[in-house]
Design a protein around this nucleic acid. Structure first.
Lengths: 138, 138
DNA sequence: TTAATTCCTATTATTTTTATAGGATTATAT
DNA sequence: ATATAATCCTATAAAAATAATAGGAATTAA
C-alpha cells in the first residue's frame, strides 16, 4: 500500500510551491535544495504536474514553476492520482473492464470500499490544509 | 497504493478456508483449483499465515489447512498486515526510528491520518463480514 | 550574448514482485 | 508395511516496477 516517490515528491513539490506562492516562479534548483531531491528527478515529476495543469511554468533564465490554482482548491488526492497514475488498491478497480470474475469475487466489495474511503479522505485535504496543519505546531 | 498478490492471495486463502470451515483440512490443491493460483505460490503465502497462527496445518495424506480462529474474529486488516508486512503508505511510518525530518515534515500528518483511516476500516471487517456481504447478492 | 532555466528522450541501476523448482519430511489410507 | 498425498523448506529466476541519471535542445531574462 505504499505511495511511491513519484507521488510523495509530487506532493512535496506542490507544498513547496504553495509555501512560496508569491507570484514569482520557483526554480527546480531551489526546490531540489530545500527538499533534498535531485533536479533531474524533479524534472520528470514536475513534468507530469505541468502537463496536467497543476503548475504553470516559465522557461529560460529566472524561470521556474508556480501553482496554477489556489492552494485551497488543490486536493492532495488529485495530486497523488495524477502522479501515481491511480490510487486503487487493486488493478481490477482501475483497469478498464476489470476482472471477469468480478461477479463472484468475495473481496471486491472490500476493495471498492477501501478505495472510496481513501479517495474521500485524500480529496478532503487541500494543500492549504496541510500548511495550516503544520503551522499549528510552530 | 496497490495491495500485492501476496496480500490478495492470502485473503483469498483465508476466505476459501472460511467457506469450507467444517473441521476438515483443506488442501492447497483444492484451493489452487478453486482460486486459480499455482500450488507452489500458495505454499509460500500460506506458510506466512501458518507461522503467524492464522491457520493450522496437518501434514501428510489428507492433510491441509483450516482456520485457526473463528471467521468473525479474524479481521481483513490482520491478514493483510501479516502477509504484506505493513500497510503503511510511507516507510517512515513503519520503519523503526522513522525519518529524521519528521519534526518539520508537512506531509507526515497526512500520512498518519491516511494510515489510521485505512487501518480502522480494514480492522473493522472480518472474514465473516465478507462472506455475508457477498451472500446477499445471491 | 551569456547564463540559467525548462523541456525532451533515452538509458540504466536497483528493488520488489511474482513466481517456479526440487526435494525433504510427515502422516494417512490401503 | 507401503504407497500416496500432502505440507514444509531453501534456493533460484524471471518479470515488472521503481528510482533515478544523462545529455543535450529550446527558451528567455538579465
Amino acid at each position: 500500500m505504499r505511495i511511491s516517490t513519484k507521488g510523495r515528491y509530487a506532493l512535496k513539490i506542490m507544498i513547496d510551491l504553495a509555501q512560496h506562492d508569491d507570484g514569482e516562479y520557483v526554480s527546480l534548483k531551489e526546490i531540489a535544495g530545500r527538499q533534498d531531491i535531485s533536479i533531474k528527478y524533479l524534472e520528470a515529476i514536475v513534468g507530469i504536474l505541468n502537463k496536467a495543469g497543476f503548475v504553470s511554468s516559465q522557461r529560460g533564465k529566472s524561470g521556474g514553476y508556480r501553482l496554477a490554482m489556489a492552494a485551497d482548491k488543490c486536493t492532495v488526492g488529485s495530486i497523488l492520482k495524477i502522479s501515481e497514475g491511480s490510487l486503487a488498491p487493486v488493478s481490477c478497480l482501475s483497469d478498464e473492464g476489470g476482472c471477469d470474475k468480478a461477479g463472484e469475487c468475495v473481496s471486491l466489495p472490500l476493495w471498492r470500499n477501501l478505495d472510496r474511503i481513501v479517495d474521500d479522505y485524500l480529496e478532503s485535504v487541500t494543500l492549504k490544509d496541510l500548511l495550516e496543519m503544520s503551522a499549528v505546531d510552530e
